[in-house]
């Protein structure tokens, strides 16, 4: 049995410029105007957030954009003590909350960061509202986080 294993270092670096597609493009443009947009399936009436172009269940195209409410209910959450970026799990100084939120008018739950003055304050069923960046520029971070309503 070999004692020392010789390893070849084989980094892979690639960078893509994926088109986000018609539906997400409108969503992102909506964020710039501090709006949350979804799409409504003409067949099953489900409202998907973030929007997409096809309802998997009905297998039909969906293009009817609808605006979603910004104050909703926290359905589920986890208290994160780490972040994962570039495959590394890193401890954070201050635990933070990742939640799934039901916004009025949406069938999907939207994921987001929940900010409160203290972590134990967070409870499922609590009302939360969207908080925007002061200056929006048309990216996902425009919708900065959710806080108790």
């Amino acid at each position: 049995m070999p004692g020392n294993v010789v390893r070849a270092r084989v980094p892979i670096t690639f960078s893509y410029k994926n088109r986000v597609g018609h539906a997400l493009e409108q969503y992102i443009n909506g964020l710039k105007e501090k709006k949350i947009l979804g799409v409504k399936c003409p067949a099953c009436k489900k409202v998907y957030v973030p929007p997409r172009t096809v309802c998997g269940k009905c297998h039909k195209p969906i293009d009817q954009m609808v605006e979603i409410g910004q104050e909703g209910v926290l359905k589920n959450f986890t208290t994160a003590h780490v972040t994962i970026a570039n495959g590394e799990i890193t401890d954070v100084q201050q635990p933070y909350i990742i939640g799934l939120i039901k916004l009025p008018g949406a069938s999907s739950l939207i994921s987001g960061i929940i900010k409160t003055s203290s972590v134990p304050e967070v409870k499922t069923g609590m009302k939360v509202k969207a908080v925007w960046k002061e200056t929006t520029q048309g990216d996902y971070n425009d919708l900065a986080y959710f806080e108790p309503a």
Partner: peptide, 28 residues
């Protein structure tokens, strides 16, 4: 492992947002 897992996430929504991954999904 989390890096190879990340490559299975939606490249135009979940990956740039960095909130949803295999671990946080399991936690939810």
């Amino acid at each position: 492992v989390p890096l190879t897992q990340a490559y299975t996430l939606d490249p135009v929504y979940e990956r740039p947002r960095g909130i949803i991954n295999f671990y946080s999904t399991a936690a939810l």
